[in-house]
Amino acid sequence: MREKILNMLEKNGRIDIKDMATMLGTNETVIANEMADMEKEHIICGYHTLINWDNTSDEKVTALIEIKVTPQRGVGFDSIAERIYNYEEITSLYLMSGGFDFTAIIEGKTMKSVAQFVSSKLAPLESVLSTSTHFILKKYKDYGTVLDVPDKDERMLVTP
C-alpha cells in the first residue's frame, strides 16, 4: 500500500486523498494515516511543484557543481556536506562515487551571482579542494516529466 501511495504522490502531489482511496480500493482514513506516518518517518519529505521557470518572466540560472574535498579524520563527508548544504543557494547536494565527491545544484538570479557564490563561499571552504561549475542551458525533462511538450491526445475520438 505504501509503495502505491508513494508512486501516486510522486506523480501528482496534489492528488485528492479521496480519489487516491478510491483508486487503491481502500478508505480515506487508511491513506491519511499512512501519509501522516510516512511524513513522521521522513519518507515523505515534502510536496513540491514542478515549475518550468523558463516559461516565466523570472530570470533564473541553475548550475551543477562538481566538488572535490578532503574528508577530515573523524568527521568524514557528512560534516563537510552540512557546511555546504546550509547555504540557501544550494538546492540539492549529493555524495557521489567516481571522479569527484559531491554534486551541488545551485540556483541563482544570474550567472554572475552563481559564480560569485562559488568563488567567495564554496571554493574557500577549508576542505574543498576544487570545484567545477556547469551551467544548465535548458531543461528538457525533470522528475520524469518532459517540460515544454504539452500532452496531446491524438487518438480518434471513437474507436471500436
Binding site: R155, M156, L157, V158, T159, P160
Partner: peptide, 14 residues
C-alpha cells in the same frame, strides 16, 4: 462525433 467541434471523449478502444 467527428463533425462535432470541441467534443471530448470517453469512447476510445485503445
Amino acid at each position: 462525433v467527428s463533425e462535432m467541434q470541441d467534443a471530448i471523449s470517453l469512447g476510445v478502444g485503445e
